[in-house]
Design a binder for these strands. Structure first.
Lengths: 141, 141
DNA sequence: CAACGCGCTTAGAACAATTCTAATCTATGA
DNA sequence: TCATAGATTAGAATTGTTCTAAGCGCGTTG
């Protein structure tokens, strides 16, 4: 007998959490289900909380913040800093960069293979490169 | 008779403000003098206010914020977004990129000629590229 | 030179995003 | 089933930034 789409997603979410060593609580499962429904989503705590509310998921804002940070620590999400006023989390943790639409506060992925950066000088003494972020800021018109 | 270093800097600051169409008030002059003492400084509102306080300049925090934004609008400063929790302003408005030392929250310039980025896809329809920011995140060890 | 007006500065309040707190709940392993 | 470590929660607290409204001062005009 066929499983409902929602159940399949919850199973997948449970597997992800298990792999990350996070207890599969109701809230984490529901948030994971929302987050990983598509593989290149860009959310803020606020937007995810709102999305959850619309979907009838009962989760406090504090838990959304906690969960986003835990998922990030577990490598399921990546934080993207492009705007001084809000923090974005990206469900695509692979090698890629971003367009940032400054007018609408929207992020769009640029596949890692497309962009190439050369001539990055060596990191200062005693430091090692953690990541190279490229943000292409675009605006309407 | 030779002018004091401080006076020379204030004159230079006055010239900058005049060119930018900003009234040369005491606060703006003093902040400009501090900011443009070196040509590649990275400050936050907080750090600049503190620096001013140490230097005996009497300026409110609100004015520091106002001034930083006005200088930015006038093209004397550039805002750099690297850290979700604070906003940096850079006195170097030329073409360049940054190292960001994540441990100490410090920025170091990378000259624009050193780095080259290729393969940036065309901006989404109806959008134009405003700027391409590269942040090389490094950490100790 | 006096007076005016507009822009500037200010302290403190307000705000928004995020984190903390401490009480309550729940998944899990014995 | 029970105990417990860990998770969730509402609401308070914190932090960085912006707003507000009152007073000040720079440059101009009469």
């Amino acid at each position: 007998m066929a499983k409902m789409e929602r159940e399949i997603r919850l199973d997948a979410a449970a597997a992800r959490l298990k792999a990350a060593g996070l207890r599969p609580t109701r809230q984490r499962l529901e948030l994971a289900r929302l987050l990983f429904a598509a593989h290149d989503r860009h959310v803020t705590a606020e937007s995810l909380a709102e999305e959850g509310a619309r979907a009838g998921v009962k989760v406090s804002l504090a838990t959304v913040y906690n969960t986003l940070h835990q998922f990030q620590a577990a490598g399921l999400l990546r934080q993207v800093v492009v705007d001084a006023s809000r923090t974005y989390f990206d469900t695509n943790v692979g090698d890629h960069q971003h367009f940032f639409l400054e007018n609408e506060g929207l992020l769009i992925d640029i596949p890692g293979e497309e962009i190439s950066i050369s001539g990055v000088p060596a990191a200062p003494l005693g430091m090692s490169v953690d990541r190279v972020d490229v943000v292409v800021r675009v605006r309407r018109q």
